[in-house]
């Protein structure tokens, strides 16, 4: 595994990725979320799956997501997470923040072309 090319998940962004993933995929279990995040990143992200669970718990404590036990596509018992209304708002807000931040940073980092 070429670990050096892969980025560790930057702490604050994990929650945003989780929320976005659940929004895109609908109700999903932890394993599925982890896999989906890796896939979406084009396997650039090196995600320690274990770190996902405290993040999910925190989002649940915040009321952004709700959890429910269900059965997976392969007939395994799993805990499924879905977005709440508060979660949707939080996602919209944080996504916007993120876009602004990256836009600003982009302007800083690409001065040559900007002139």
């Amino acid at each position: 595994m070429g670990a050096k090319d892969r980025a560790d998940v930057w702490q604050g962004t994990l929650a945003l990725m989780v929320l976005k993933t659940i929004e895109a995929m609908g109700s999903l279990h932890g394993y599925g979320i982890a896999r989906r995040i890796e896939q979406t990143s084009g396997d650039v992200l090196e995600l320690n799956y274990g770190t996902l669970y405290p993040a999910l718990l925190k989002l649940e404590q915040e009321g952004a997501i709700a959890a429910e036990w269900g059965v997976s596509e392969n007939n395994r018992k799993a805990k499924f997470y879905s977005l709440t209304r508060a979660g949707r708002k939080q996602l919209a807000r944080e996504a916007k923040n993120w876009e602004q931040t990256t836009a600003i940073l982009a302007r800083f980092l690409a001065p040559d072309e900007a002139v």
């Binding site: 279990h29 932890g30 394993y31 599925g32 896999r35 799956y49 669970y53 997976s72 392969n74 395994r76 018992k77 799993a78 805990k79």
Partner: peptide, 17 residues
Amino acid sequence: LEMRAEIESHLVMHIDD
């Protein structure tokens, strides 16, 4: 118990894959 079950279920799904 619930936490253990969730992690176990995670592992099972990963092992399946």
